[in-house]
Nucleic acid binder design. Structure first.
Lengths: 215, 215
DNA sequence: TCATACATCACCCAAAAGGGTGATATTGGC
DNA sequence: GCCAATATCACCCTTTTGGGTGATGTATGA
């Protein structure tokens, strides 16, 4: 088992970062980097046409991000292991990836040794998560604000309204944007505040930015 | 000149990333990585005790960030060239660094070749900025919102009020927090909106978060 | 000294936000 | 079929925001 070569695909739009991982791994005899991709779409194509064992992907990427990519991979090519690497750790992201049965989650501040360790473990079928990730996730179970404790589920329409709010539109303008009544927008805004636990639109704005809803 | 060795210090709290740059540069004969640091304070100590030519630093770091580090370096050790590397590019950051007479600014999605190119140019005394950085900066000169065009100067009191607003306090609460009249808080809020070019408190919130005023 | 920015406050007024309740129609899951 | 969530709208009411104007004292710098 450990004599086999691990066929690996790197996915990250940060060339410098990818060059870095590449440089770290290229001298490891049992690891074979079969390709690199700058975004999820590209990665999917390569994954479908190659005999991959493992995929290492960033989360923040243009076109198709790491979460969507992971979802696609796990659905269509469940034999490929997936390790996610990101600069930041927030509870919602960790939770999403956990549900997708991701195999590993590393922060970009983890070192060479931990990276190799993670790759080997995941290849053998184990899971690997950075300590920081586990800490953040466990802490979240005792989180202070509503948005952290109970994962907030916003409906598609609520998300649309939220996006408009963050664009500094007032209720009247949002109603026109979405072709609905002012009263309806009012209702959505109030429901958003209740769900998110915000006191006013400022709270909604902060939530949206933290969740990357506006990006 | 080009036969000399470039003595270089890497500063980044992302170990994996640093390992990456390290791996890229370690085989380059005329580059000597004299050390690595995880934060600005550590970097300053090393810089003071070594004969450095060039420092490559991330912006986002704990304790002392890349901007503070650059400021200290340029003040106390002006002979050391500084290249900043970051994942993101926003106008305010670019502008701050420009004023600090930084020598280079790269995004993390720049490749190996560009990195080497930048190091060589900067070592020779030239400046090097990623295309993306130049694009963002030039665009900002014709930016849409006031906050980008003219750098906004907020008075200390206005900053206090802004912080309270971002904490989801309403005018009444802010007045109590700062022991002033509700009318005065109103005035400050209105002046903030005028200066920043925001349509409402949502705009103020976004500005505050972008500027890191709440961090 | 004069101008400017700052911090403070007041008043008027319109528009918007927020809090509560209730109603209807549609949908998807169990 | 029933239940829950969603999306839609209406009406009540109070509080808050936002826009405009003007006034006063203080401090600072040209």
């Amino acid at each position: 088992m450990s004599n086999e070569t691990i066929k690996l695909l790197l996915v990250d739009d940060h060339h410098m970062f990818m060059d870095g991982i590449y440089a770290i791994l290229k001298d490891i005899s049992h690891i074979d980097i079969v390709g690199t991709a700058n975004n999820g779409n590209q990665a999917l194509k390569i994954a479908k046409s190659s005999a991959l064992d493992l995929l290492i992907t960033d989360i923040e990427m243009p076109e198709m991000d790491g979460i969507q990519l992971s979802k696609s991979i796990k659905k269509t090519l469940p034999n490929i292991k997936v390790i996610v690497v990101s600069s930041h750790s927030n509870v919602q992201t960790i939770d999403k990836l956990r549900k997708l049965q991701i195999d590993g989650y590393l922060l970009k501040n983890t070192g060479k040794i931990e990276l190799l360790n993670a790759i080997n473990k995941v290849y053998k079928g184990e899971k690997y998560f950075s300590e920081e990730i586990l800490r953040v996730y466990n802490q979240s179970l005792f989180g202070t604000n509503k948005a952290e404790k109970e994962k907030v589920k916003l409906s598609p329409r609520e998300l649309e309204v939220l996006k408009c709010i963050v664009q500094e539109q007032n209720t009247q303008e949002i109603a026109e944007s979405l072709n609905i009544s002012v009263n309806t927008v009012d209702t959505h805004r109030k429901n958003l505040m209740r769900k998110i636990g915000a006191k006013n639109v400022v709270g909604l704005t902060k939530y949206a930015i933290q969740q990357g809803i506006i990006a």
